[in-house]
Design a protein around this nucleic acid. Structure first.
Length: 271
DNA sequence: CTTTGCACCTGTTGGC
DNA sequence: TGCCAACAGGTGCAAA
């Protein structure tokens, strides 16, 4: 579910509720996430207050005085602020309970998410160490994409979804960015021109920024911290729209699999 | 090194 | 109605 815009929406949503708040209890209902939740997490966190709420790619970082809790929402995860005592629904695996009678609750049916504690600098943690630049940051541009893609034979869609190239671009925004840039998703990454890489980098920034402004995309189960959905769905030009008319030229949108994931594109607007 | 395929999980949808 | 296959917003790993 969550790509960068959904994770950033979640970050902004939870921040005012958790910043500076002290953990009084941690409830682990099911530790079996992608990485098992540490049995000592409650003992570690109890009594500590959250110093900052930040994001690296699709990871959320809750910094405490003695370390950082790294959260990931996988395919189906979401975080909500609930009142203490709100009965858990199925797949509500983890609660951080604050001294404010509120709790941060992780819900994740498919359990591809994680909650990992590290005492070290989180950026050297194996989960984060090899990640590429932030797409909304200065280090990401057409020159970076061009340089990294030389010699690569995988599709450009697969390429921009690789977190070692650039973080945060998942299956929705990969197809959407390629539509905006006018580039077919199945083209070999190494065959893009400098100009195309520049257009693509700009398209990625624009699409992600626009999606953040709308609170992300809700397809089925993404919700914000207050339970509201994201409102970017009506702005999707190609994702999930196979056989429907292109918003720009009316041609039927096509779909194909690349890298094990579905890509959508307009055969007329994209070359 | 790159590329490919699969594994991890549960829930929903669509065809027969 | 029921069953079953296909598919879903992500990532890591093994094998070639």
């Amino acid at each position: 579910m969550p790509e960068l815009p959904e994770v950033e929406t979640t970050r902004r949503g939870i921040e005012p509720h958790v910043l500076g708040k002290m953990i009084v209890d941690v409830v682990v209902r099911n530790p079996r996430l992608r990485v098992p939740v540490s049995k000592t997490l409650a003992r570690t966190l109890r009594g500590q207050s959250i110093r900052t709420v930040s994001r690296r790619g699709k990871y959320l970082l809750l910094r405490f005085p003695t370390g950082t809790l790294i959260l990931h929402l996988g395919m189906s995860g979401s975080l909500r602020i609930v009142h203490r005592g709100t009965p858990p629904r199925p797949h509500d695996h983890l609660d951080l309970v604050f001294d404010t009678d509120k709790a941060l609750r992780l819900h994740d049916p498919r359990r591809f998410g994680l909650a990992v504690w590290t005492c070290d600098d989180p950026f050297v943690h194996p989960l984060l160490a090899g990640l590429g630049p932030e797409p909304l940051g200065d280090a990401f541009d057409g020159t970076w994409l061009y340089g990294r893609s030389r010699g690569r034979r995988i599709s450009i869609k697969q390429f921009i979804m690789d977190g070692h190239v650039v973080v945060g671009v998942g299956n929705i925004y990969a197809s959407e960015s390629l539509f905006r840039a006018g580039i077919r998703p199945l083209r070999a990454a190494g065959r893009l021109t400098r100009a195309e890489c520049a257009r693509l980098a700009a398209a990625i920034r624009d699409v992600l920024a626009a999606a953040i402004a709308q609170g992300g995309t809700t397809l089925r189960d993404f919700v914000r911290e207050d339970g509201a959905p994201g409102y970017f769905s009506p702005h999707l030009d190609v994702y999930g729209r196979d056989d429907q008319p292109c918003h720009r030229c009316g041609t039927a949108i096509r779909r194909a699999i690349t890298g094990g994931r579905t890509a959508w594109w307009c055969p007329r607007c994209q070359r």
